[in-house]
Design a binder for these strands. Structure first.
Length: 352
DNA sequence: AAGACGGGGAA
DNA sequence: TTCCCAGTCTT
């Protein structure tokens, strides 16, 4: 039987989360920005970053006109940096066409907007009657219908279930609220572990609750082991407390972001003669710091060693000299860990 | 269909 | 540690 949209909406009206992007009058720019930031990122992490981003780029026009270096700095630490590149490109496309498209298909054609975000912005900002399939919706649908087939194979079936719910008159009357109600149910009641079924407005008629399968759903395909990779990075200081950073290539891992110069990252350990050519200045005496900075990526684990030196005056080098403070603000988390290591080893000026 | 792509918080 | 998060793009 169909879970009643009216029951969920009544629950939502009493228990919905107070989120910053839910304030105001549904400006598509603010909704779109929140949805992109929320891709694979928790609500708690996004909250302050969304406010800060909006303060710096108050409109899609302001974002479109900003230089990439400013957008990259504002996104630093949030991860999945292709999102920031696509966000910037999307803003420019939106300005060029005179505003956001108001259809799911139109939104879907923009950079960085996939099936999920097109449906989410379509429903929340434009009242389209579509249910975006995210982790919450996968969990709620798989439990309601006790779908035991594993993800990602079961996705089309789960999407069809969720879309069926939207066909009810109560849901079609408030599409944006209905999808956000499912999000909130998944985030606060129908949680990955220890779901609070006793508090769930959809408990009656939930097949996962009835059979006791709910906590173990959705099932997922087994994950691959992550290999360990290593690299050696260089902390080059000048006489005035600045350090040398360079920008990574525009695509790929940490694409377009700043980094400390270093070797590539690989599973085979680096030998001394292999490391030397990657130093930003040849012939310098590098201090080898103790310890390693460790960072986990989705698909591999990374251990980074660090070497420090002071640059000879007047050396011409590729890259930007930045203060430690400015560097910390603009670097992705991976590289911030190298600064942490340098500080712990006393290799940074002024104990910064 | 499978892999690349960050980072943080909860259990 | 592992899991998961308001996923998208490339191959």
């Amino acid at each position: 039987m169909l879970p009643a949209a009216s029951l969920l909406l009544e629950w939502y009206d009493r228990h919905r989360r107070a989120l910053p992007w839910r304030e105001g009058s549904g400006d598509p720019y603010r909704i779109w920005l929140s949805e992109v930031m929320l891709q694979q990122t928790t609500v708690a992490a996004v909250g302050p970053r969304w406010r800060r981003f909006l303060a710096r780029f108050p409109s899609v026009e302001a974002l479109a006109a900003a230089p990439w270096a400013d957008v990259a700095e504002e996104w630093a630490g949030l991860g999945y940096y292709a999102r920031a590149r696509n966000l910037h490109a999307c803003a420019q496309a939106v300005v060029a066409r005179g505003g956001f498209p108001d259809t799911v298909e139109g939104l879907r054609a923009l950079p960085g907007i996939g099936a999920y975000t097109a449906a989410a912005v379509g429903a929340i900002a434009f009242g389209r009657e579509v249910v975006p399939l995210d982790g919450n919706v996968e969990r709620v649908t798989s439990r309601l219908a006790a779908v035991e087939a594993p993800l990602p194979g079961a996705r089309p079936a789960l999407a069809a279930l969720a879309q069926q719910w939207m066909e009810q008159p109560a849901a079609r009357e408030r599409p944006g609220d209905f999808v956000q109600a499912i999000f909130d149910l998944g985030a606060t009641i129908c949680t990955p572990r220890n779901p609070a079924c006793a508090l769930c407005p959809w408990r009656q008629g939930c097949e996962g609750f009835r059979t006791g399968l709910a906590p173990s759903l959705p099932r997922k395909a087994a994950k691959k082991a992550r290999p360990l990779k290593r690299g050696v990075h260089f902390l080059l200081l000048d006489g005035t407390g600045r350090l040398l950073l360079r920008r990574r290539p525009p695509k790929g891992l940490l694409g377009g972001m700043l980094e400390l110069p270093g070797t590539p990252w690989r599973e085979v350990p680096w030998t001394e003669p292999e490391i030397t050519p990657f130093a930003p200045v040849p012939g310098l005496s590098w201090q080898v710091l103790e310890g390693e900075a460790k960072h986990g990526f989705t698909h591999f684990e990374l251990h980074m060693a660090l070497r420090a030196a002071t640059a000879p005056p007047g050396a011409h080098l590729d890259g930007d000299w930045m203060t430690v403070e400015a560097a910390r603000a603009a670097l992705p988390g991976t590289m911030q860990k190298l600064l942490d290591l340098a500080r712990a080893e006393g290799a940074l000026p002024g104990g910064a």
